[in-house]
């Protein structure tokens, strides 16, 4: 099997609005693009009984996650007519209200960008070995669960 190109998607800490803005600006030189689709995941302050989520601490099995992400990327590009796709996922402690996932797809016409964005977000949540520990105000915690 040929070796897939493995790109890092992980960043330490939250993803800033400035970073997102700059990412959009960088695409203005590619005038073949007619549509962008962006998904932003924000840490939600869930209420569980008396407890309120203050932050989520993300950890990952990076080697496996990046290999899986390379596989997903290849499949998404094979399926949708994308110009480019950028993915950034936070690690470490992210406070409620901060951005922890930034998915950015671009294409000539809107359908490919929108469909690919939706699909890759689902696959990130279901298939990447990343874990979120919900930390409460009293410093106790519980482990979030998507699906396995």
């Amino acid at each position: 099997m040929e070796k897939k190109k493995v790109k890092n998607i992980f960043v330490e800490g939250p993803i800033s609005a400035a970073f997102i803005g700059e990412s959009i600006a960088k695409h203005s030189s590619n005038t073949n693009i007619g549509a962008h689709s962006i998904f932003l995941g924000q840490v939600r302050s869930d209420v569980l009984g008396e407890n309120v989520v203050q932050s989520i601490e993300y950890t990952t099995y990076a080697d496996m996650a990046l290999e899986k992400m390379a596989e997903i990327r290849e499949e998404i590009f094979a399926k949708h007519a994308l110009t480019c796709m950028h993915i950034h996922h936070s690690l470490g402690i992210i406070s409620a209200g901060e951005i922890c996932l930034f998915v950015f797809t671009s294409s000539k016409r809107r359908r490919a960008a929108v469909d690919a964005c939706t699909e890759v977000v689902e696959r990130i949540k279901n298939e990447l070995p990343v874990w979120g520990k919900e930390i409460f105000a009293d410093k106790t915690h519980q482990w979030k669960e998507n699906t396995l």
Binding site: T60, K125, E127, P129, V130, N146
Partner: peptide, 29 residues
């Protein structure tokens, strides 16, 4: 269980040199 970074869905042989990881349900994103 992941063996050499691949999820195991049926019983699989473990080599001494294998990378073995125990993975709780994912909750990224």
């Amino acid at each position: 269980i992941a063996l050499n970074k691949k999820l195991i869905t049926t019983d699989a042989a473990i080599e001494v040199s294998a990378n073995i990881a125990l993975l709780p349900p994912f909750s990224g994103g």
